[in-house]
């Protein structure tokens, strides 16, 4: 009990806050090399201090507003921890005309308690347009999405982008700055069959002059280098729109000393097969975010502040009410 009371001390609160401030400064701006524990440990200390204070400090547990505020703070720490344990963050690139495939996720980070089912996410990427302002400043993004039903059939078209994420349960997909061109290629091996796939070029217009990638066809030892020579001129000092309607270009194919320019529909014969450049299209990069506690965080934090407001309001006559000036003349208490 003595330890319990000691942990409830306001002095412990101050020490915890100081340690948390130091931890925040050590990690200021991110990627400083300090472990995230410089934040977690002070928060744990504050959580224990807060729980003890709520249980033992009458100034807190006898005043409903303050009690609500401090309970909310404690709940926030717990819910944030649960959220981090259950979270998922990832990136995915989806080519126009193709559907979302969970196996294509990159930069995947997820907590050990992540129980979400990525198969909940089911949609077809449609064409998109992004308006740019002078100085290549990215403006509004409008990405057409075809929602699919349980059978994988198209059911509804929606537009997402900027502040409008694509939401599936607790999964939220955000369009990102990462997007660009993609070439649809078909590989026809000499022994028969065909393989169709896409090769995504680097993000555009970020890598305007580096629209290069390479690919080794299935069953082949040849690594083919591609350069997408775009013919869509845009003026960096003017307004323009990035969309397929405004895009065209030829695909420069290079293998060793051979360099060939292919238009859409053209083919190139290799020793072990034929490469066909089917079409130029685009890909969109999405940031995937999963945290089932988002709503709870909002409601808990809002109720906490309401509690603090309630506490202050009970003394508000002297702060903002009609007797404000009289009280200040007399002296408030």
């Amino acid at each position: 009990m003595h330890l319990f009371s000691a942990m409830a001390s306001l002095k412990v609160t101050l020490v915890g806050m100081l340690l948390l401030a130091v931890g925040s400064m050590l990690t200021y701006g991110g990627d400083t090399g300090f472990s995230v524990w410089v934040l977690i440990l002070p928060m744990l200390l504050l959580a224990v201090n807060l729980a003890s204070a709520i249980a033992t400090n009458r100034k807190i547990n006898r005043q409903p507003g303050l009690l609500l505020f401090h309970l909310s703070l404690l709940s926030l720490v717990i819910v944030i921890a649960v959220g981090r344990l259950a979270h998922l963050d990832a990136q995915v690139e989806i080519v126009v005309g193709q559907s979302f495939d969970p196996s294509h996720l990159v930069e995947l980070q997820q907590g050990p308690w992540h129980v979400g089912d990525l198969n909940e996410i089911s949609f077809l990427q449609g064409p998109y347009g992004i308006s740019y302002e002078p100085g290549v400043q990215r403006g509004a993004t409008a990405s057409q999405i075809g929602l699919l039903d349980e059978k994988g059939q198209f059911s509804e078209e929606i537009i997402v982008g900027d502040d409008t994420p694509l939401i599936f349960g607790d999964y939220r997909l955000y369009t990102s700055f990462n997007k660009g061109y993609s070439v649809i290629l078909e590989w026809l091996p000499n022994e028969g069959g065909s393989y169709t796939g896409s090769v995504n070029m680097p993000s555009f217009p970020l890598n305007d002059y580096r629209q290069k990638n390479e690919w080794t066809p299935p069953g082949s030892d040849t690594t083919i280098k591609f350069w997408l020579k775009l013919e869509n001129e845009y003026n960096k000092d003017d307004y323009w729109t990035l969309s397929m309607a405004n895009s065209s270009g030829v695909l420069v194919v290079t293998v060793d000393d051979m360099r060939v320019e292919l238009e859409e529909g053209e083919s190139l014969q290799f020793d072990d097969g034929q490469l066909k450049y089917n079409e130029l299209t685009m890909w969109m990069g999405y940031t995937i975010f999963y945290d089932p506690t988002l709503r709870w965080l909002f409601f808990i934090s809002t109720f906490g502040v309401l509690g603090l407001g309630w506490h202050l309001w009970s003394r508000a006559d002297r702060l903002l009410g009609k007797n404000f000036d009289n009280e200040t003349k007399r002296g408030v208490n």
């Binding site: 925040s24 990690t27 701006g29 991110g30 955000y174």
Partner: peptide
Amino acid sequence: DAWGRYWQWDELETSSFLNWLYLGAIIH
């Protein structure tokens, strides 16, 4: 809504949090 994360400890967020923490600390 805008950037796909509610908190990322970027410079402005961390400074704002430190400000909030300072305010809470001096009240305590």
